[in-house]
Design a protein around this nucleic acid. Structure first.
Lengths: 189, 189
DNA sequence: AAGAAAAATTAAGCTGGTTTAAGAAAGTTA
DNA sequence: TAACTTTCTTAAACCAGCTTAATTTTTCTT
């Protein structure tokens, strides 16, 4: 069943019955997307939270000069949306797009709240997810302040070698906050 | 009572009885600190989560060149720790220090878990806190990628004018990721 | 109120990383 | 497999922001 990736993931955080898991899974919609499809458009109301079963998504925005800048990638078992906009039901600051062909679960804001009300145990699941994600985002802010662009790339390549292979170089450059040209120069060394 | 700032804050997120709030508050310890006292030392086990009743804390680290870099400030009603290290009970990546004389509540990791177990409604409270904090951290990453250092300062001053008055300029520079010298130059214009 | 320490300013020289522009390589489609 | 499109590389000129260092101003301490 396509939703087993999610239920499996939930079980790593919670002690929970199969019966409940089935009901929880029913709150989500399954989608299959091809590479480079848009799931959320910046400036539009952000009403969907996504869970990646298989594949890769990115959230990005267009900077002053018209260049797309990747904020996050989400691969298997990651959650993605514009969390602030989703929570406040405001316009999204980011575009969300598939980087690869992807299988995804989605949930609307109202369903998400209904889920949390009917299954309060999911509060614990998301509390842990966000607690980790928040901590990690702060570590990223630390890295941005600590390392030169060259070090950023080298560290990232050491930490996630398979991922560096997986995404196109210009997206990696965008995520790491440097130009594709400079990344190319770094690699030459 | 010194803990009323916390219970008041919790009430803005949850419908909850006074009786429960009193019990919840009993999990926390009250401390009063003078300016520039250290609450958590980098490299030491991170076993405390802090809530600011009054005053201002910062988390910072020392970069390669020996310069302190501020990651976050926490003022009234904010939570602060090294969230990743706290959760995993690892050594802290950050120093946490008072910027002003401050009144603070603290809770240890084991008490925190006990609190969440005994009062599952607090899962919802922290889920919402972290969800917002995570979303905000990602917006900060967006800003770091979008704006020049000059724009960073001007935007920040427009958004939080009272806070810019409140903290020393060198800490603000550290938080915004520029040198005090350059900040000084920007202000002159 | 004096002296010491911490914070802020000013200015000149320097550099990591961008911009621009053009060509080479790799993917995609028919 | 040819034509087209997307991605990657190379190189030179350029600049936002840093470094260094000296001076001034503000804040702290007694």
């Amino acid at each position: 069943m396509t939703k087993s990736a999610l239920t499996k993931h939930i079980k790593t955080y919670l002690v929970i019955s199969e019966e409940e898991l089935t009901q929880i899974a029913s709150f989500f919609d399954y989608h299959s997307y091809r590479k480079k499809e848009t799931l959320i458009l910046a400036e539009k109301r952000c009403d969907q939270l996504f869970f990646v079963i298989e594949g890769c998504l990115q959230s990005y925005f267009i900077d002053n000069l018209g260049n797309p800048k990747t904020i996050q990638f989400a691969i298997e078992n990651w959650w993605l949306t514009d969390f602030l906009a989703f929570q406040n039901q405001k316009r999204s600051n980011f575009n969300i797009e598939t980087v690869e062909n992807s299988e995804v679960l989605s949930i609307s804001f109202s369903k998400y709240n209904e889920l949390l009300t009917k299954f309060p145990v999911m509060e614990k699941y998301f509390r842990e997810i966000y607690q980790t994600a928040y901590g990690s985002a702060l570590m990223r802010l630390k890295h941005v302040n600590t390392f030169s662009k060259e070090e950023m790339f080298l560290k990232f390549r050491d930490s996630y070698p398979e991922f560096v292979q997986r995404v196109p170089q210009y997206l990696l450059a965008s995520f790491l906050g440097l130009t594709p040209e400079y990344l190319s120069e770094i690699k030459r060394k």
